[in-house]
Design a protein around this nucleic acid. Structure first.
Lengths: 208, 208
DNA sequence: CCTACCGATCGGTAGG
DNA sequence: CCTACCGATCGGTAGG
């Protein structure tokens, strides 16, 4: 006895579903994100949940989209004000740490991309494609900031932006593991220490 | 019509189950490792599969044990012959790369520990405990090799073994991601390049 | 957005 | 190690 909601109400419901879905997927994975679980959590019927997406795959893609929006807001947006070059690169890196450390509310099981990357790395399909696309996107942006820092003379011209990007991503993957699996509060400082070395003014650590 | 096998035959069957289980879990995770799937793959009944373990959890733990044995054989055993210090540390690191690169047969979905770490990092239970225990074990061993290298004077006395271990693990996590998710053949060389910097004679990159 | 239902698969058990 | 079965849950559909 709750049919015929307005379009605005339907959008609000969809939001609730997706936000809860992101939290569930961060813990149990995008496959573990089941319609029945969502319905129970939200006090809805399964058909009511599924009606907003049609298929589970579309729901998974919506959760991934929402996670991407959260990531952009937490990591890239705050750094936009910083000066291009090393200051902005450092701002991005610091925001990334803060994102992994404190976005525990939206991602109780850790960064959804870290989870989804491993979950879908040996499968096909549209969800895997989306994970790959987003992974490439964050790396491309990070490499872009590194190039700006090189162009500004803040990092050595010998710097290999792809290599440096690769090493920084490694520092975030191990940070996510240490926070989630080992609950080690020293991890953020460890990533910071390694980053300080890689991003020292004039540093040429990651060379071709 | 195939009851009453000998104890040796039963052991051989158990082996087949576990080995196939490791391969499945590496692709679909330890939760995605289902009794029915195993039974179909091996041409057995579900009860026949489950009879060797009793519960799915025990089967998951057996798969994890087998993966640990493979890891020890591939990474730690070959390095045992190398001289303690930087030579052995480097041998371990190189074997670890080779393990991720070439153990595609036993782990078609990539290193099972990388998969299981993310899959269970937000859960409780005995499987999670085993993943944590093994993760700590590899790190402790790696830190031990680093300490030997410091003691031998091969690495700077300023070296922080925990910090260096952390950074090296990051280089393996990103290597696994790039091999599995992005299928990027340049990844092993990237990890090698970063390791060469961290493990240069007298290097004091990872200091406290 | 609901009730009612579908076939398939899940982990697991009984009994031989 | 098998057949036969259990209740629960899966993704999804019909129809309102």
């Amino acid at each position: 006895m709750s049919p015929r909601k307005s379009a605005a109400e339907a959008r609000a419901t969809r939001r609730r579903i997706v936000e809860r879905g992101v939290a569930i997927a961060s813990v149990d994975g995008l496959e573990g994100l089941t319609i029945g679980r969502l319905a129970t959590d939200l006090g809805m019927s399964k058909a009511g949940v599924l009606g907003h997406f049609g298929t589970k795959e579309t729901l998974q893609l919506a959760a991934l989209d929402e996670a991407a929006a959260v990531f952009v807001r937490a990591v890239w947006r705050p750094a936009e004000d910083a000066a291009p070059g090393l200051p902005r690169l450092r701002a991005v890196c610091e925001a990334w740490i803060a994102y992994l450390e404190s976005e525990r509310e939206t991602f109780p099981g850790g960064c959804l991309f870290a989870t989804a990357s491993v979950e879908f790395d040996a499968r096909g399909g549209r969800v895997r494609d989306a994970v790959v696309r987003l992974g490439r996107l964050w790396r491309r942006r990070l490499a872009g900031e590194i190039r700006l820092a090189v162009a500004a003379g803040d990092l050595s011209p010998d710097t290999d932006p792809e290599q440096l990007t690769y090493e920084i991503v490694g520092l975030y993957l191990v940070l996510n593991q240490d926070l989630q699996l080992f609950a080690d509060p020293r991890a953020p400082e460890r990533t910071r220490r390694a980053l300080a070395r890689l991003l020292a003014p004039g540093a040429s650590a990651a060379v071709a």
